[in-house]
């Protein structure tokens, strides 16, 4: 009986969070992280990948998707700690639906490095026309802010999507 109440309460709170619209992923506001990582690309929220992915990535910064993104040992340790403490499978990501769904979509024996190749991400973007992604104003699926106008706030809501040079993105079905 008690268990049922607790489960219902958890489910209810989940629905409340989803309706708030701002509970997609915890925003990445760490100054050091943004300085060191978001100078070359969007500051992807730590809650977009599980801990094992961040650990693997941070151990290979000399060859970070084809470029040298090496850091001094102290900075590297600090950022690794920030990423892993706030990863999609961390306590800190609790209640954030996109973190939950991304993490849930990845096999436990896999540690993907590209957020854009996680099953949940692929599913969510499968209907986006190819030209919308490859066009100059976007470039690739890694360029979140090109279309997700509130990505920096950790919100990937469909209402906030504006694909450049394409009519406002509308997708059938609900925002999950």
């Amino acid at each position: 009986m008690h268990k049922k109440i607790i489960i219902s309460a958890i489910l209810l709170s989940g629905i409340v969070f989803a309706d708030e619209g701002g509970r997609d992923v915890a925003p990445a506001k760490n100054t050091m992280y943004l300085k060191e990582c978001a100078s070359c690309h969007f500051g992807y929220q730590p809650g977009l990948l599980p801990k094992r992915s961040w650990t693997k990535m941070m151990n290979n910064l000399d060859n970070h998707f084809g470029t040298d993104a090496s850091l001094d040992p102290k900075t590297k340790a600090y950022i690794t700690r920030y990423l892993t403490l706030n990863s999609a499978d961390s306590v800190n990501a609790g209640g954030y639906k996109r973190s939950y769904k991304i993490n849930n979509s990845i096999s436990t024996n896999q540690a993907p490095l590209r957020i854009s190749q996680t099953p949940y991400f692929l599913r969510e973007h499968r209907e986006v026309p190819k030209q919308a992604i490859t066009q100059k104003a976007v470039g690739s699926l890694a360029n979140c802010t090109a279309c997700h106008t509130t990505a920096f706030e950790g919100s990937y809501s469909e209402r906030a999507i504006k694909i450049p040079n394409f009519r406002n993105w509308e997708e059938e079905g609900d925002d999950d």
Binding site: A38, S39, C40, H41, F42, F65, G66, T67, V138, G139, S140, A142, N143, A146
Partner: peptide, 8 residues
């Protein structure tokens, strides 16, 4: 950045 499109 030609890979990420991020302005420098």
């Amino acid at each position: 950045n030609p890979v990420t499109n991020k302005s420098i």
